[in-house]
Design a protein around this nucleic acid. Structure first.
Lengths: 153, 153
DNA sequence: CTAGAAAGGTTTCATAATGAAACTCATTGC
DNA sequence: GCAATGAGTTTCATTATGAAACCTTTCTAG
C-alpha cells in the first residue's frame, strides 16, 4: 500500500483539517483532553486504544501543535498532555459532532451525555451564520474556490 | 488484528458520531457531496481514492443513511449519490472543520477556498452559544455525564 | 535499603485495512 | 457491431493496527 496522499497542501481548509485530525483516534483523544484528561493511562483506559497506537497518536498530535507535553511535576506521571490554544480551537468541531450525534444517533429517549454551560447549566448549541448574524443552512451557502491562476504550480 | 471496538453504544454523542463518519475518507466524500458531486467517478477523481475503497465507503455511508443512492435517469451514470437530510445535517461539522483549518493550517496570506452565503457573498461563520444566544468557549462549558445508575448493563 | 508495583512507553508479531492495477459488465455513441 | 466510458469487483502487495510481552523509571511498603 502506498502511503495515503497528503492533503496538507489542498486549498480546501476542511481537507487540511481532516488531514491533521481526521483519523480514527485523534479526535477521541482530543475529546478526552477537553474532558480534562492529561495522562497516558487515562486516555488508554477511557478509549481502550492499544498502547503503541496511543503513543504514536500523542506524538503526532503533539508534533502538530494540538497537544503539548509538559514534564509533569506531580506523582508518578512522566508527563502530561494538554491542549494548546490550537487544540482548544477544535471546540466547535467537537460541539458540531456532538450535536449531530445527538440528533441522529440516539433513539428517542435514549440517555446521552450533554454539553452544558458550567455556570448556568444551560445547553450549549452551535449555529452557522453569516457575518451579520443571520443563521444559514447548506443550501444558502456555497464554496468560493481559489481561482486556478492564483495557485502556485 | 481484532476489529476496532465499536462506539455505537457509547453514551457520548461525539463518540458515536466519530464511529459513523470518523474514518479517513467519509467526511471528504461528504464534503464533495456538499459541493454538488453525485457520481462515483467525480468522487474518485476529486479525492484520488482507490476505487474499491470508494465503493465500500459509499456503501457504508448509504447504509448509515448519510447518502442515498438514486437510480439516476441521466446519461451513462448507473446511480447518483445524494446527501440525505441526515447527511445535510453534517453541515455544521464541515463548517467547523473548515474554520479551524482556516485559522490554523494556512500561512498568513495563503490562498484557500471560502464558504460564503450564496446570495450576499458574505462569509459564513460558526459560533458556539448557549440556548439564550450568548457565545461560549470550552472553558465555560462542561460535559454532563449520564449517571451510571441509568445505564443499562 | 530493597523488593515490589505502577506509569509510561517500546518491540514483536499476527491480522485487518488500504491502494493500485487488472478485470467485469452494462450502456452509449458511432 | 464495436470501441469507449462509467461503475464497480477481484487480486495481490504493503501498511496500519491491536494485543501481549518486554523495558525503565519512579514511588511506596516493609
Amino acid at each position: 500500500m502506498v502511503k495515503r496522499r497528503s492533503l496538507v497542501s489542498d486549498y480546501c481548509p476542511s481537507a487540511r483539517a481532516l488531514d491533521a485530525i481526521g483519523d480514527w483516534w485523534s479526535l477521541l483523544i482530543v475529546r478526552d483532553a477537553f474532558d480534562g484528561m492529561t495522562r497516558f493511562s487515562e486516555f488508554q483506559k477511557s478509549l481502550g486504544i492499544a498502547r503503541n497506537i496511543l503513543s504514536e497518536r500523542l506524538r503526532t498530535l503533539t508534533a502538530r501543535g494540538i497537544l503539548e507535553a509538559v514534564p509533569a511535576a506531580t506523582g508518578r506521571a512522566r508527563q502530561e498532555y494538554r491542549l494548546t490554544a490550537k487544540g482548544r480551537d477544535l471546540f466547535p468541531v467537537m460541539v458540531a459532532l456532538r450535536q449531530w450525534g445527538e440528533q441522529h444517533l440516539f433513539a428517542p429517549g435514549e440517555q446521552h451525555s450533554s454539553l452544558i454551560e458550567r455556570d448556568s447549566g444551560r445547553k450549549v448549541t452551535l449555529t452557522v451564520q453569516t457575518e451579520d448574524g443571520r443563521p444559514i443552512d447548506a443550501e444558502g451557502a456555497m464554496i468560493l474556490k481559489v481561482p486556478e491562476t492564483e495557485k502556485q504550480p
